[in-house]
Amino acid sequence: MKATVVTLAGALCALLIAALTPAGPARAAGLPPGLVSASLLPAAPQPDGTVMTALALELAPGWKTYWRSPGETGIAPAFDWSGAPNVAAAAALWPSPQIIESEGAQTLGFRDRLVLPLRLTPADPSRPIEGMLAVELGLCLNICVPAHLRLAAPGAAAAALDPRIAAALDSAPRKGEGTAHCSLAPISDGMRVSVSVPAAGARAAAVEVDGPGMWVSEPDLTTAGGMVTAAADVVGPTGKPFALDGARVRLTLIGDAGAVEYQGCAPS
């Protein structure tokens, strides 16, 4: 059974640009089709010295955007903080995705809205996070189009964490219990990885491999004897079989009760 992110049709290769100003979230007149508003939420300082903000998107009815794993032909979201010089490092903390069924295909993403927490490490903690963030993402109705947004950085820190950010953090995938086991086998252009965990109720899965230039196929998801197995092909930059460390493999299972995540797998 195929069980994760795919596009509904070939992507329309057009770049759609929206410029967002510090005055607040832009509205539909200045945004790509399918996007009603977009902004970065006020940043709040954290005890570890980082600041927490979030990308907030409101989508038009029927439209969706991708989760962090875009599938074989999807559009992976990308963030460029070079226009905000006080950002030394940034990490996206993804909430659990929705399973979206459309025209016989299944995708992992978000309808209606997305609040994506972003943890920023300032180069100078005494200065605000100012400048611009460039975001590339896919927006989908019957076809998926790439969109490019420029968002004003949050500026001065807020006194407390926005409740929308707190809710998104609470909805992140739970850490899976037990150990994930994997088997690896070479294929002509990479490796076949099968990850098994004791679980039940999974309706979709995503297999991800840490590292630049890694392409992962839509996994096959099977359940037998109380074990769930997701099997996918992994192709690296060389297009040849390669040594794959199980610690680089991440499995996410999504069901009606939310998402469960396993980082790393031990040899079967």
Rank of each mutant, 00 (worst) to 15 (best):
M191F: 03
A206G: 07
R119D: 02
A243E: 15
A172K: 13
T223P: 02
L184T: 08
A232W: 02
P241D: 01
A159L: 13
P154H: 03
G131D: 03
R192D: 03
D162F: 10
A134K: 10
P154D: 03
S126C: 01
A199M: 06
L118T: 12
P163H: 12
L221K: 07
T222M: 12
G155M: 06
S194C: 01
G138Q: 04
A185W: 01
M191G: 04
V135G: 06
A159D: 15
G201E: 02
S126G: 14
V193K: 01
E208H: 08
D210K: 15
S217G: 12
A134I: 00
V209D: 01
H148S: 15
C182N: 10
P198N: 08
M132E: 14
N142V: 08
A152W: 02
A205M: 07
V228Q: 13
P198R: 15
D162M: 10
D124I: 06
G225W: 13
H148T: 15
V115R: 00
T238G: 03
A199L: 05
A247L: 04
D189F: 03
E208L: 10
G178S: 14
T121A: 05
A204Q: 03
H181Y: 10
R248A: 14
I129K: 00
G225V: 13
P163E: 11
D245F: 02
V234Y: 00
G131H: 09
A224K: 13
L184R: 11
R248L: 14
P212A: 13
P146I: 00
L161Q: 14
M214V: 07
T222N: 11
G211P: 09
A172M: 14
A243P: 01
G246W: 00
V193L: 02
A200Q: 12
V228Y: 02
V197G: 02
R164F: 11
A232M: 05
G201C: 08
G176F: 06
V228N: 07
G131M: 07
A224S: 15
R192C: 01
A232C: 04
T121V: 09
V135M: 09
H181S: 11
R192Q: 10
A204R: 02
D189K: 05
S188N: 06
P125G: 09
A159C: 08
A180I: 03
A224E: 12
A231N: 00
T238Q: 06
D124T: 12
L169T: 12
M191V: 10
D170Q: 15
T179R: 15
R113W: 04
P173C: 08
K240L: 15
D170T: 12
D245S: 13
G155H: 06
T121F: 00
A152M: 04
P163V: 12
L139N: 03
G226M: 14
R150S: 15
I187R: 10
R113M: 04
V228R: 13
G225H: 12
G226K: 13
T223H: 14
L141M: 13
P163G: 11
E177T: 14
S183G: 09
D189S: 07
A205T: 07
G131T: 07
A224T: 10
L139R: 10
M227E: 09
D189R: 09
M214S: 02
S126I: 04
P146F: 04
A206D: 11
V193M: 01
D233A: 14
N142Y: 11
V228W: 08
K240S: 10
S183E: 09
P241F: 01
A134D: 09
A231H: 01
M227S: 09
G226Q: 11
E218W: 11
V193I: 11
S188V: 07
A232V: 05
A204E: 03
